[in-house]
């Protein structure tokens, strides 16, 4: 199944969840998302999502010099970002419960 369309709806939450563990830069973020199982996530999608979340005031950014290459811009969650992630967790939990029930043919209580 093509999960690209599914991914579009949850990429914000996925990016926020990775950044909640520790601030990181774009390249590392893409790598972590793919290692977590979202192999189809596009580089441009991750950077586009980062820019949108940053413009929405949910992220912090900080330039950190690197010994291995160019200066890296680390993105992290601010308070609004953490609140947004918490709301996304709750929404996903409810949504996934409903979808699981539907897909497994269970009747709602």
């Amino acid at each position: 199944m093509d999960t690209t369309q599914l991914l579009k709806g949850v990429l914000d939450a996925a990016v926020l969840a990775v950044l909640d563990r520790a601030p990181t830069y774009g390249y590392d973020l893409v790598k972590r998302l793919r290692e977590a199982g979202l192999e189809e996530v596009g580089d441009a999608s991750v950077y586009g999502t980062l820019r949108r979340l940053y413009r929405a005031g949910l992220l912090t950014s900080e330039l950190v010099p690197s010994t291995e290459g160019p200066t890296r811009k680390y993105y992290g969650l601010n308070r609004a970002g953490k609140e947004h992630l918490e709301a996304a967790r709750k929404a996903w939990s409810e949504f996934s419960t409903v979808m699981t029930r539907l897909l497994e043919g269970e009747e709602s209580e």
Binding site: D43, S45, V46, Y47, G48, T49
Partner: peptide
């Protein structure tokens, strides 16, 4: 070869960034 053509990259970026 990795990111797709510049046009594809920008289209995807615009779609997700809300540009």
């Amino acid at each position: 070869q990795i990111l797709g053509s510049p046009e594809e990259f920008v289209d995807e970026l615009r779609a997700t960034a809300g540009f």
